[in-house]
Design a binder for these strands. Structure first.
Lengths: 262, 262
DNA sequence: AAGTGGTCTAGACCACAAC
DNA sequence: TTGTGGTCTAGACCACTTG
């Protein structure tokens, strides 16, 4: 099938951009990727479920299996789907992922994370508030819009290590309770998927070294002169829509933030 | 060409691992990737140069162009090679890269890095020393082996922002001088490539929040109560051989460390 | 016009998982 | 045995760069 002979009901295939300037050529597999992405966003297949086989998708979009394959290759590289030979291709999920915390880069200095086990969570606070200017900007809301704010402490092996403030858009997370945050077994992001249909696909972090205020120091069991790693994270769903702002303070006396540069 | 009918002089192709246990099946394109990697390590093509075309490599290794293509795709994904349509495939280099500092994640809080221009480097110190236990461990040397140690300050827009201590294996960097570190235009990693034939292909960083000692504070123009971001980086050449240990202190009052999580 | 990487196809066969 | 993803091939054509 050539890029200039599209057709097919399900496949708006081909057709370059109609804008001015560059003709905006887009390869077929990119267009297919976009169509699959739309289905993912629309919830046609839920997290953890299998998407149709490559042959089925090829038939649906009237392209060759190889073209579908390349589209799925990119979705897999973006961690939106997971391929399993002999079984199928599955929508990625924060639950049932062998890495417990996909976005958490804090590791113990000695041994590995599996030794210290899962974090103990203590919810300090969870309430509805109006968005301040900076929270609104981060979540692309208006100042004063309803947001959910939570504060919690994560402890490893009994030692409080992370203090987090979390802001969520009130609209999408209506009804979220402190009870829910505290009692859900597994990653919080998995709860967001299951209870609210919000799947975080990527995140950006800004790191700084800071000193805690007295309240923060007390919650982490350190004094006000102990430097802490400040981690501001914005997590995004599909389409680069921000759905969570998280400000964390990490103790780095027994742990460190690991980053791989490629 | 099937995986069970190898042959060809240049292509030890196929042939699964001879070890016990799993037959260690390895796809052809992985083997081709390994062969190209060997040529890169051996310096058959220097950084910035073009490698042979896909057709040439296909002929050399007696495989189809598509198989070579998949091998090069992975090398490009690893940033070992850069593809340029219509021109060829080139060995990646730290020079002539549009991102000035490939491994530096520190950005100014306002505006972008291009506005504040290149860093001003001040070499504080550069001498041969014997490796301490922890430096030796990081560089996979023996305690007491000769290493080169340098200390420098990077300033942006006149403000000292980064203090770095750098350790390099004495063997590979014989003859490196403070003058050379100070006067080379462009990234230090580019100088390593050109003057010493050492190309860094990836790095790992451990981040912590710390307080500086008096000497460190003085060099950065801050007081001893100012928390700083400690960044310990180990940079690797081909084959996961560590070739540099770098301990940096970053001021995060005007800059932040940015990280993307996917 | 020639050469390079980029896309797309169709078909064969392999490895893996489940029935 | 069947169906899934994974590999490999051969050939056609497109897009970009250079002479």
């Amino acid at each position: 099938m050539s890029n200039t002979t599209p057709a097919a009901p399900e496949a708006p295939a081909a057709i370059s951009g109609s804008g001015q300037g560059t003709p905006a050529f887009s390869p077929l597999y990119q267009q297919i990727k976009g169509l699959i992405l739309q289905s993912l966003q629309a919830g046609e297949w839920k997290p953890g479920e299998a998407i149709p086989s490559e042959m089925e998708l090829a038939a649906r979009f009237r392209v060759s299996q190889g073209t579908v394959r390349k589209a799925i290759d990119e979705l897999a590289a973006d961690n939106l789907v997971v391929r399993r030979q002999g079984k199928g291709t599955f929508v990625a999920t924060h639950a049932e992922q062998h890495v417990q915390y996909r976005f958490l880069r804090l590791l113990p200095d000695t041994g590995d994370a599996s030794e210290e086990g899962p974090a103990q969570r203590s919810i300090i606070d969870c309430k509805r508030v109006r968005a301040s200017a900076d929270v609104a900007r981060a979540l692309q809301l208006r100042t004063g819009d309803a947001v959910l704010q939570a504060r919690r402490v994560l402890a490893f092996a009994g030692t409080p290590t992370i203090l987090e403030d979390i802001w969520l858009p009130g609209q999408a997370f209506k009804g979220l309770t402190a009870q829910q945050m505290a009692s859900y077994p597994g990653p919080t992001y998995a709860m967001f998927e299951i209870d609210f249909g919000v799947r975080m696909v990527r995140a950006e972090e800004k790191l700084r070294a800071v000193l805690p205020d007295t309240a923060q120091a007390r919650l982490l069991g350190v004094d006000c002169a102990t430097p802490l790693l400040s981690v501001e994270r914005i997590a995004y769903t599909y389409n680069d829509v921000p759905m969570e702002l998280r400000r964390g303070l990490y103790r780095t006396d027994t742990h460190h933030y690991r980053n791989a540069l490629n």
